[in-house]
Each structure stands twice: as structure tokens, then as C-alpha cells.
Computed example of a mutant assay.
Amino acid sequence: MGEYSIFVWPSYGAVVVLLLVLGVQSWISKRRDEKELDRLNRRFEELNKQD
């Protein structure tokens, strides 16, 4: 890579950090959505029992 390595390696590092951040955000969002779905399913079951 020679003289370009000063630009290439930080770019690789930035991509790795960005992928990690996006992966963590997706994981947190998935957990939040699953909790909301469980809450809604429980509420739905409660409403069905009332009928």
C-alpha cells in the first residue's frame, strides 16, 4: 500500500466501528420491538378473554 496506507487503514477502522455501531443499534431495536410485541400479545389475549 505504501504511501496510501495512511488513508486505507483508518478507513478500514472506520468501517469496522460503523458496522459495530449499526449491529448494536439493530440488536437493541430488535429487543425493544420483541418486548413491545409481547406486551401487545398479552393485551390482545386479555381483550379476547373478556368477550
Score class of each variant (00 low, 15 high):
residue 21 V to H: 05
residue 45 E to N: 15
residue 40 L to Y: 08
residue 17 V to W: 12
residue 35 K to M: 00
residue 20 L to T: 14
residue 21 V to R: 14
residue 39 R to H: 06
residue 34 E to P: 00
residue 48 N to R: 01
residue 22 L to R: 04
residue 25 Q to G: 08
residue 41 N to V: 04
residue 30 K to D: 06
residue 7 F to H: 03
residue 24 V to P: 02
residue 14 A to I: 11
residue 12 Y to V: 13
residue 44 F to I: 14
residue 51 D to S: 10
residue 1 M to H: 14
residue 10 P to L: 11
residue 14 A to N: 09
residue 17 V to F: 15
residue 2 G to D: 13
residue 20 L to A: 15
residue 12 Y to T: 06
residue 46 E to H: 09
residue 40 L to D: 11
residue 16 V to N: 07
residue 29 S to R: 08
residue 33 D to C: 02
residue 42 R to H: 12
residue 44 F to T: 10
residue 16 V to Q: 10
residue 2 G to K: 08
residue 37 L to F: 04
residue 6 I to D: 13
residue 46 E to D: 09
residue 17 V to L: 15
residue 15 V to A: 15
residue 25 Q to N: 05
residue 29 S to L: 11
residue 34 E to M: 03
residue 20 L to E: 03
residue 49 K to A: 13
residue 5 S to N: 14
residue 11 S to I: 03
residue 24 V to M: 12
residue 32 R to A: 09
residue 17 V to S: 11
residue 29 S to C: 09
residue 44 F to R: 13
residue 16 V to R: 12
residue 50 Q to K: 15
residue 25 Q to W: 05
residue 9 W to E: 13
residue 1 M to W: 14
residue 10 P to T: 09
residue 50 Q to G: 01
residue 30 K to N: 05
residue 49 K to G: 06
residue 31 R to E: 06
residue 37 L to H: 00
residue 47 L to M: 15
residue 38 D to G: 03
residue 1 M to I: 11
residue 30 K to W: 07
residue 37 L to E: 05
residue 11 S to H: 02
residue 42 R to I: 06
residue 30 K to V: 04
residue 3 E to I: 08
residue 22 L to A: 07
residue 50 Q to W: 06
